[in-house]
Computed example of a mutant assay.
Amino acid sequence: MFVDRKCFPDWEIARSPIDFHDLTFILEGRADYYINGRKFTVEAGDMLYAPAGSIREAQTCKQSPMHSYAFNFCWEGPDNHVQLPFHTVTRNRRTKEIMDDIRDFSHVWMGKQPLYRMKARAIFQLIVYRLLSIAHHQEAPLVDPRVHKVMAYIMDHYSENMSISKLAAGVGLNPVYLGKLFKQNTGFTCKEFMNKVRVNNAEMILSAGGFNVSEVAEHCGYHDVAYFSNVFKMIKGYPPSSALK
């Protein structure tokens, strides 16, 4: 559910548990939210997140009534308990791109044209993606651009024969130095990262059906099926045959 909430001075939400996730962007004014008994004062520019299962209560500031965009949503399937990695209140989270997306969502939701729910869902997922990207970049250290380039090359060419020397030459580094730099930035060696990318793609192809283990191994850059099976089981915890559709 989406609400363009323009509050009257006496607006409030009665105290009650919620079985949905509440993601609210404050556009104007102020309000006091109580999430699991703890008070949070929100104002223009803030984002509030209360996960499913929270006990929620709220009331607006009479002198400065709140105007907000609120998304009340549930994850599909059995994953509704999964929480987004946001604080209850995040300051200054409104970027131009996010606000543009929210306005697009509002127009789609209110217009209710054919397929509007599908379009609205896609825009909302983009909003969450942007929020997660911001949170990730704030919490994670920046990856050296040369390492990022090598990672992108591996993901684009995972089925090809690759060596540390070839990867290093592509970014103008000594192979030994690239190995150290890659490990420092990612926590993996180049070989470990390459195997992870190859196995993830192999799992996806196997689960889609139409290919046997030998064919998938060859497609993902492994010419020894036994070695592929060992690497796959080491990373995934089960043999590639278990991923066959």
Rank of each mutant, 00 (worst) to 15 (best):
P175D: 03
Y158S: 10
G237R: 08
L244K: 12
V213K: 01
V42N: 01
D100S: 15
V150T: 13
S163M: 09
S68P: 01
I154C: 07
D46Y: 03
P114L: 01
I55Q: 06
I164W: 09
M99T: 06
S133D: 04
K39D: 09
S133P: 00
R146D: 07
I154P: 08
S207G: 00
M110D: 07
L206R: 00
R130Q: 13
M47T: 14
V176C: 09
W75H: 13
E12C: 11
K96M: 10
T186G: 05
F20N: 10
S159G: 10
G45A: 08
Y69V: 08
S64V: 02
M151S: 09
A52R: 07
P114E: 01
R117G: 14
A208K: 10
L178D: 02
C61D: 15
R94G: 00
S54A: 13
D19I: 04
Y116E: 02
G45R: 05
D100H: 10
N72A: 15
A208S: 12
S229W: 01
S242G: 00
G111V: 05
A169T: 09
P78Y: 03
L132E: 11
I26R: 01
L132I: 08
V197Y: 00
A152R: 14
S214P: 00
G209M: 00
A58L: 03
Y34M: 13
F193D: 01
D144N: 15
K196V: 07
K39S: 11
V108E: 10
A243K: 02
N161T: 14
Q184F: 11
T189I: 04
Q59G: 14
F182N: 08
H137V: 12
Y69H: 13
P17C: 07
